[in-house]
């Protein structure tokens, strides 16, 4: 099994998803099964092959570095679970 319980715990934290201790073994098993499936890629000879960065051969367009939008504070905050005085409100971040 490529993923043990400690790794599963670490991955869950990396992904910022709370996973209860009792669910970790099952998660480790499922992630391992997917990763085992991916091992087949090791058969492929990729020497000298460039990793794909763009599926269509085109250069990323550039635009002028200017302000194109703004002044829509109400719209930006309209869907926030907790917005106060024009800000997003979150639990205390620094003591």
């Amino acid at each position: 099994m490529s993923i043990d319980i400690d790794t599963a715990r670490r991955v869950a934290h990396l992904a910022r998803i709370r996973v209860e201790e009792e669910r970790l073994p099952h998660l480790a098993e499922q992630l391992s099964s997917v990763l085992d499936f991916m091992e087949q890629l090791n058969e492929v000879d990729v020497d000298g092959i460039e990793p794909m960065t763009s599926v269509t051969p085109m250069a990323l367009p550039r635009r002028k570095d200017g302000v194109t939008d703004g002044g829509i504070q109400d719209k930006v905050l309209a869907n926030a679970p907790d917005a106060r005085e024009g800000f997003f409100a979150v639990p205390k971040v620094v003591e």
Binding site: M38, L41, N42, V44, V46, I49, E50, P51, M52, T53, V55
Partner: peptide, 14 residues
């Protein structure tokens, strides 16, 4: 091991 290799295989698939 995973991501970059997959992007190389993707080049071959294309």
């Amino acid at each position: 091991a995973y991501y970059v290799r997959a992007q190389k295989v993707r080049t071959l698939i294309k």
